[in-house]
Amino acid sequence: MKLIKLIIVKAFRLIGIDWFFIKDVLSVLKGFRVVNREMRTPIESFHSMINLFCRTKGRSNQVIHKILTLFSSKIKFDDYNGIVPIKSKFELKEIVKELDEKGYVVYENVLSDEVLEYLYKFGTTTQSSARPLYSGKGLVAKNTVIDFNNLIAIHYDFNEETLINDPVVQSLMVDKSLIAIAQEYLNCTPISNVTGMWWQTDFEKTPNDEAATMWHFDMDHVRWIKYFFYITDVNTNSGPHCFVEGTHKPGKIPKELLKRGYARVTDEEIAETYPKEKVKEFIGKKGTLIIEDTIGLHKGKHVIDGSRLLFQLTFSDHLFGGNYPERKITKFADPKIRDFVYKNPKIFKKYLANSETK
């Protein structure tokens, strides 16, 4: 057996492929079998996907994604009515064309004053998990309502299950314009997952890699798209989202950065690697929406003064990827939303109890 393995390894080396590459490919294939059966990704398979991404400069994810789209149909839309103004299939394709080219699209004033007030009130009256991260102050994460006069953490995360059972959040989860953009970009039925909202504060005076205030690429799934909503006004000092234009494309993150794996990147390294005009800082009023492929390099800029509240929706091509705690929708305030969800169970299968999908 050892001799056969040695022969195989040498054969692959002759054509420029080593055993570790093959091992990662096999591990990813195993992971997909587990996900399809159990809706969870083995951690070793997830790490193998990251290894392949770094070794192939992103091309492996593209190949896996194309294979996945062969087995996924699309949902049909009678219209694209929603918070993003889309009047025709042509306009939808133009949005996706811009996403393909730059890796992001920005819209202003997509949320009504009523929705913004509601989400801000939610953010200031609902308990969240306060994470001091590397504060050095001996604090641990705890559930609390944010107190701007007595901050105890950099990050205040809201419970995902609380969010997905909220009527306003559900209305955004089923927004047809957002789902249509995700579907057109991913070229398959998009799967809703990782619904989040959090405060980023000026509790710490220096950037924190665990708080995502240093440059990085995401590796949530094989392919995905994220929607970032500013619920508060965001200026250069209050933690704007930042992105390096074009780095969502395979080969645009250099080997020197990828060889470190799933690691943070400094401002100095970004400045040395990319032209200044490609490094985007998204200043915006509350109600601003950033649509982004976060496989590209990005960060939330460190908050110098004040606090920023951000709401996020994610749609992916498959549930293979990072594992998150199980969260389920248990109630609907609006029958129309319930009908849409159960009419499109593939989109929302992560959040639906097995008994409710029958």
Rank of each mutant, 00 (worst) to 15 (best):
T288Q: 02
V106K: 10
R33I: 00
D18P: 01
W215S: 07
W198Y: 08
L151Y: 14
I17E: 05
Y120N: 07
T266R: 07
R264S: 14
A353L: 04
T125G: 09
L163C: 10
L99S: 01
S45C: 05
H248T: 02
K142I: 04
A180R: 01
I337E: 01
K66V: 01
D100N: 12
F148P: 15
L119A: 13
I64A: 01
T266Y: 10
V96F: 15
K278M: 02
L92W: 14
T189H: 05
G251S: 06
C188K: 03
V145T: 08
E91S: 12
M39Q: 15
V265A: 01
N36S: 08
K301S: 01
A353W: 04
P167Q: 14
R13L: 11
G306R: 02
R260N: 14
H216D: 02
T294Y: 01
A182T: 02
L319T: 06
F77S: 02
Y120D: 04
K331I: 00
Q62A: 10
Q200M: 03
I225L: 15
D218I: 00
A11E: 13
V244A: 00
D339H: 07
F243R: 04
E161D: 06
E326L: 14
G322K: 03
V169K: 03
C188F: 06
N51R: 09
I154R: 14
N193L: 09
Y351P: 15
D305F: 03
G123H: 02
P250W: 03
K350Y: 14
K89V: 10
I154S: 12
I7E: 11
W198G: 07
E160V: 08
G58C: 10
F77D: 09
L139S: 08
S129M: 12
V279L: 05
K121H: 07
N235H: 08
T125E: 14
H65C: 09
D175E: 15
I8S: 01
R264E: 08
T206F: 08
K57L: 15
Y342L: 08
Y230I: 03
I64L: 01
P132M: 07
K336D: 13
V169R: 06
K30N: 00
K259V: 07
G300Q: 04
A180I: 03
Y156I: 04
Y227E: 05
K30A: 02
Q127P: 03
A333Y: 13
S60W: 04
A211H: 07
F77E: 11
T201Y: 05
T236Y: 09
G284T: 01
D267L: 01
N354T: 05
K286V: 00
E117S: 11
T69L: 15
R59E: 11
S135C: 12
S171H: 08
G321T: 03
S128M: 14
F228W: 09
W19P: 00
N187T: 11
E292S: 11
L26K: 00
Q62K: 07
F46N: 00
F348I: 06
A212K: 13
S171V: 04
G136P: 10
V279H: 01
V35M: 15
W224Q: 09
E326Y: 12
G246S: 00
H47Q: 14
L26E: 02
K93V: 11
L92T: 09
R55V: 03
L52A: 02
